[in-house]
């Protein structure tokens, strides 16, 4: 005869064991799949990041491992960043050819607009992309390359081309178009790109310095 307590204990032990077996089996399945897919996933994620950077930086400009060149940048008013951001240094041979910066346009119509800006060592923009924004759909979102080619007009611009007083949207007497009815968003982007160029000009010396012996992989 088993007492009720013994019976309950036995039952608990039995259900516990069954649950354990299922958990073990499930974990084994996950561990196996994770192990098999991890290299592919890492590759896809890196390819994705590289593809994004390639949109603002022509492939011909560099032959180094861009992702390995990532460095951390302290928050800076000219970049609009309030947290450390990333930058990537493009080199051909040993010469620095361009830099890709993360920047924020803080005065969009509905908050921050995150940008990726490529700047050649000569101070010319190689490309700009919006990576995150909350602008009104259908109104301010044309800054997104998926919606329109507007952002392409920054290519090859520099602090002197157009002249500083023309670094504005056309409505304010500047050189950059903006669609009627939605000028706040492009205004913010133009200002952010200009500031990033300014930032680059001030820190140019630090970029062209010879590469450190060991690049920190972030």
């Amino acid at each position: 005869m088993t007492s009720p307590i013994q019976f309950a204990l036995k039952n608990a032990l039995r259900t516990g064991t069954i649950l354990f077996v299922f958990a073990l089996f499930g974990t084994a399945m996950l561990a196996f799949t994770h192990d098999r897919t991890e290299p592919t996933i890492t590759r896809s994620q890196q390819a994705e990041k590289l593809a994004l950077i390639n949109q603002v930086l022509p492939a011909a400009l560099y032959d180094n491992d861009l992702l390995a060149s990532q460095q951390s940048v302290l928050p800076d008013d000219l970049l609009g960043t309030r947290q450390p951001s990333a930058r990537w240094i493009a080199r051909r041979g040993d010469a620095v050819t361009a830099v890709v910066l993360e920047a924020i346009a803080p005065d969009g119509y509905s908050g921050d607009i995150a940008l990726l800006i490529g700047i050649g060592i000569d101070g010319n923009v190689t490309g700009v992309r919006v990576t995150a924004h909350r602008e009104t759909p259908g109104l301010g979102d044309y800054i997104d390359r998926a919606k329109s080619a507007w952002i392409d007009q920054f290519a090859d611009k520099s602090l002197t081309n157009p002249a500083p007083k023309h670094w504005k949207v056309a409505k304010d007497g500047g050189a950059f178009d903006a669609r009627a009815g939605a000028t706040i968003t492009p205004r913010a982007v133009v200002k952010a790109v200009r500031n990033a160029l300014d930032y680059f000009a001030r820190h140019r010396a630090a970029f062209v310095a010879p590469p450190p012996a060991k690049e920190k992989i972030a």
């Binding site: 009104t136 759909p137 259908g138 109104l139 669609r179 009627a180 009815g181 939605a182």
Partner: peptide, 9 residues
Amino acid sequence: VSFPLQMTQ
């Protein structure tokens, strides 16, 4: 929501 641009005329 749908036509914010035209709603500015």
